[in-house]
Design a protein around this nucleic acid. Structure first.
Length: 920
DNA sequence: CATCCGACAATTT
DNA sequence: AAATTGTCGGATG
């Protein structure tokens, strides 16, 4: 169960009549325990309670009690020896009126009315195993509110299908945003004491809900009408206490959808929540799920945590402002200059979602400004930082609407925090009517018109007029001498997952500027647009991105193009795993890259140390691989550049899954038809090689096709292969291969021996897996093969030097090594080798093989486990490295940094010489 | 023809 | 549930 489902379940539980006997079980059920677990607890077999309650080991001790006994019961639970013995994390006591609980690990306690306990569900989330993401526990309110709003949204659309159509979706979204604003306003004092939004709806609308929409409509109408115009507009007297809000939020239609009885009661419940607790950055990111079928249930999928947002914003500009604040000390003049500078900083998020980057940036700037004002003795001064300087583009209407609202709420909260409730309320209404969040396709819109450069009057112009309502972003606003910072977390989509439209977006940006742009990730578009923006006006940009744009094939496509615009990498954060609110937190490994065309003599590279700490390193340059080294982009080559043997891609089955089977299956076939033995060979991909567990495959030469097909179990598999190839109707290559179902697409084998290199393998091993197999072995496409290659090639691949190269210039699968013949092997710089050097290396390779042999039948995975790697094997690798590195520089390298430096240097020399040759 | 990628995916601990 | 570690398909060059 995810957090939303749990919230729904315990809300339902609290709504039911209290049943003392059932409560503990219902409670545990709501937190996602399986029926069988509950059954066992009921039966008593797993119930460890010594007080007649319910005690689930390692989790919680619950006891219901007589009226008024909750406090005493909680004390008894705390003192119970069974609680300690079963290592309970929580204790809980309730009499159906009062509810008490304690987190025994932290000592945190809850005492509340029984009906209110769902408000504290975040407290108990560890019961459901949701502990890793702190933000969830700390934003229990946001989850509750989101989940309720979602139910209201769905209910309203059910009764008002026309509001769900494309034409009215915006009205619907704006309606929801207005509701949220009103809930927030009535709880935080933005509305005066008489303007109680929820209670007014409750009392003025009929219980049968028939006129709810009219009451809400009247309230919205009032909020869109100046006090002096209200009589003329016929605003009812009971709507009069509500202030004029405007701010575009209430302009346009004030019509409301019709409410069913259920929808009305949802509305009143949501209004009853304590909206002072809303956290705009978290709420905003979660609420996207409210209006999006795809994201519903996968709540918070694109949630960017505050620490991650700060990883972008701090090095981009906040650190610099804080340093300036530090430097200004109490110097009034300097403080004033800094405040003036900050008032003209623009933050632009061209993939803003519901605006959490903008909200955090705004809050941080306000915090710095508050310090300036405090030092200048102007603590309650009105802020110079205007919301119009926080701009965004968002594709979807609902998040775009919410982003504006989130900023408005953030502004109010900052005013309360830094200037006090009274000042905040006095200056808040009416809202500014300008729209500074544009709904549209960021890759098609002209960023210069959304953030016009200083001194010029660029008008908004969308490249695609149909997806860009022209009136949306007409904020004429020039920012003389101001700084612009672009930031965000745009969507990532690998080249073959993109829709035609998305491909078109990239074509629009990259076509004619670089070749092979079709292989770029969708996120590359944002970097390129940011670079183009920065070429027109001073700016710096930093995005969270999938790490693949800084790896392998994308590097030589994207980065020379970006560097060509005069940009460089200002700071970067190397790969770290993405974390979101989903309970199993799979997904993606990301980097953060900041670029600018301005001066930046010192550049910051952030890395995660082994114990998870972020380390900052200052360097003169950061290259496209996010390495502190000169710019190099390694271009794949189809032939080795330095005299290595040819490395081939393994044999691709190409829809030939039926050609592959287990070794046991192979034995069964041979047992029935001994003549089949001639056509069955051991098969090795990555896994099979690393774990010394080959599979079997059919391996049939053209001239044996008929003989093989005469064997029934083989014939069956050939038929299946032909069928699966024919089924790939759009793949021409597959259609052709259907005519030769007895063979893999490729059919290459060795004469004597073959060297195998897995395509993907764990990054935890100290050396790359490489091995020697006899000629019978078939290498499948999951591994590379060097057929009959001299063993000194193996010495190269087994070296630390080669691992460093592969780890840097090849792609990765998340952080796994992904070997590539074109990118990594063919480009690997090797000095010319003498026969003596070759035979020395062969000896090294042989001694590695012999060292492994001594541990037979240990697999590569066993032998190269960093914890348990045998000493003799380590020694053999050490000799290999010693021998090879002496060939390179006449001594051992000091460390991997030096190894990489040398390899990059050799590569640069190697490739620039090629260019020279071409000219000559 | 050859190959590089996956807001991953399957398996183990 | 978290940690570990590499399949498989197929568009792209």
């Amino acid at each position: 169960m995810n957090a939303v489902e749990i919230e729904e379940a315990i809300t339902a539980l609290a709504d039911q009549p209290y049943d003392a006997a059932e409560f503990p079980f219902a409670f545990l059920l709501a937190f996602g325990n399986k029926d069988t677990t509950i059954k066992r607890l009921r039966a008593g077999s797993s119930n460890k309670s010594d007080l007649g309650g319910v005690l689930q080991a390692n989790n919680i001790h619950i006891k219901t009690c007589a009226e008024g006994q909750a406090n005493a019961t909680l004390a008894a639970l705390r003192d119970s020896p069974a609680t300690a013995r079963a290592k309970a994390k929580f204790i809980l006591a309730t009499d159906g009126t009062e509810f008490q609980a304690e987190d025994l690990t932290s000592g945190e306690a809850i005492i509340c009315a029984y009906a209110d306990f769902p408000n504290h569900f975040g407290f108990f989330l560890p019961l459901a195993g949701i502990t890793t993401v702190r933000a969830i526990r700390e934003s229990a309110f946001d989850i509750r509110a989101t989940s309720r709003l979602n139910r209201l949204y769905v209910e309203l659309l059910k009764d008002n299908p026309d509001w769900g159509t494309a034409a009215r979706r915006h009205d619907m979204n704006q309606f929801m945003a207005r509701l949220i604003f009103c809930f927030f306003a009535e709880d935080t004092g933005i509305f005066s004491g008489d303007a109680t939004f929820t209670r007014t709806i409750d009392t003025m609308s009929a219980r049968d809900s028939s006129n709810t929409h009219e009451v809400i409509g009247a309230l919205f109408h009032a909020m869109n009408t100046r006090p002096e115009d209200r009589t003329a507009e016929g605003i009812p007297r009971w709507a009069d206490p509500f202030p004029y809000v405007n701010g575009e939020l209430f302009s346009g239609t004030t019509e409301a959808p019709r409410f069913s009885k259920i929808a009305r009661s949802y509305l009143l419940t949501i209004g009853g929540l304590d909206w002072t607790q809303v956290n705009p950055d978290i709420f905003g990111s979660m609420i996207q799920a409210v209006a999006d079928e795809d994201e519903r249930g996968a709540l918070g999928m694109h949630y960017t945590s505050v620490p991650n947002i700060l990883k972008v914003l701090n090095p981009l500009f906040l650190d610099d402002l804080r340093a300036a604040l530090e430097e200004a000390r109490d110097n009034g003049r300097k403080l004033l200059n800094l405040r003036n500078r900050m008032a003209r900083i623009r933050v632009f998020d061209p993939a803003c979602g519901s605006g959490n980057f903008l909200v955090i940036a705004y809050k941080e700037l306000r915090a710095i400004e508050a310090q300036i004002n405090a030092r200048r003795g102007e603590a309650d001064r009105r802020s110079e930082i205007t919301l119009t300087n926080f701009r965004g583009i968002e594709l979807k209407d609902f998040p775009a609407t919410i982003a504006r609202l989130a900023l408005i709420i953030a502004e109010y909260q900052c005013d309360v925090l830094h200037r006090g409730q009274r000042e905040a309320t006095r200056d808040f209404l009416p809202l500014d009517s300008k729209n500074w969040i544009t709904c549209g396709n960021a890759l098609r819109l002209d960023w210069l018109s959304i953030c016009p450069p200083t001194g010029t009057g660029v008008k908004l112009r969308g490249d695609d007029l149909f997806s860009t309502p022209l009136d949306q972003a007409e904020v004429d606003f020039e920012n003389e001498g101001g700084e612009t910072y672009i930031c965000g977390n745009p969507p990532y989509l690998g080249s073959k997952w993109q829709s035609l439209e998305q491909k078109g977006d990239l074509k629009n940006i990259f076509d004619g500027r670089c070749k092979n742009w079709k292989s770029l990730d969708y996120v590359a578009g944002w970097f390129m647009k940011a670079a183009d923006f920065g070429s027109h006006t001073p700016a710096a940009a930093a995005f969270v991105s999938t790490n693949s744009i800084c790896q392998g094939q994308q590097v030589p496509i994207l980065w020379p193009t970006i560097f060509g615009t005069g940009h460089h990498i200002l700071f970067a954060h190397t790969s770290f795993k993405w974390a979101n609110l989903a309970s199993h937190n799979a997904g993606v490994t990301v980097v953060i890259v900041g670029i600018t065309s301005g001066p930046s003599p010192i550049r910051s590279l952030f890395l995660l140390s082994d114990d998870g700490e972020t380390i900052r390193r200052e360097t003169a340059n950061i290259n496209a691989y996010l390495v502190a080294a000169p710019n190099v982009e390694v271009q794949g080559k189809s032939r080795p550049m330095s005299g290595q043997a040819v490395m081939q891609f393994g044999n691709h089955p190409y829809y030939g899954a039926p050609l592959i089977f287990s070794v046991e299956e192979g034995r069964r076939i041979v047992a029935g038809f001994p003549q089949a033995a001639d056509f069955i060979r051991p098969l090795y991909g990555s896994q099979e090689f690393i774990n010394a567990a080959p599979r079997a495959c059919l391996w049939i030469a053209d001239e044996n096709a008929e003989a093989a097909a005469a064997i029934p179990p083989i014939a069956e598999r050939l038929k299946a292969t032909a069928a699966s190839r024919r089924a790939a109707i759009r793949d021409k290559a597959a259609q052709k291969l259907a005519e030769t179902p007895y063979r893999f697409r490729d059919q290459t084998t060795a004469e004597g021996h073959v060297l195998v290199v897995p395509r993907v393998s764990s990054e935890n091993r100290p050396f790359l897996p490489i091995g020697l197999l006899n000629a019978a072995a078939i290498i499948q496409d999951q591994a590379f093969a060097l057929y009959d290659a001299p063993l000194w090639n193996m010495a190269l691949i087994a070296s630390r030097l080669h691992l460093v190269w592969i780890a840097t210039v090849c792609g990765k699968l998340e952080t796994r090594y992904r070997y590539s013949n074109t990118l990594g092997w063919n480009t690997f710089p090797v000095p010319p080798l003498t026969e003596k050097q070759k035979s020395d290396l062969v000896a090294c390779a042989v001694s590695i093989l012999l060292a492994r042999e001594a541990h037979f039948p240990a697999t590569i995975a066993d032998l190269y486990d960093p914890e348990t790697m045998p000493d003799n094997l380590r020694a053999a690798h050490d000799r290999n490295d010693e021998t090879l590195e002496r060939i390179y520089i006449g001594r051992r390298f000091r460390n991997d940094t030096e190894r990489l430096e040398k390899l990059f240097e050799m590569y640069t020399k190697m490739t620039s010489k090629k260019v020279g040759d071409a000219r000559a």
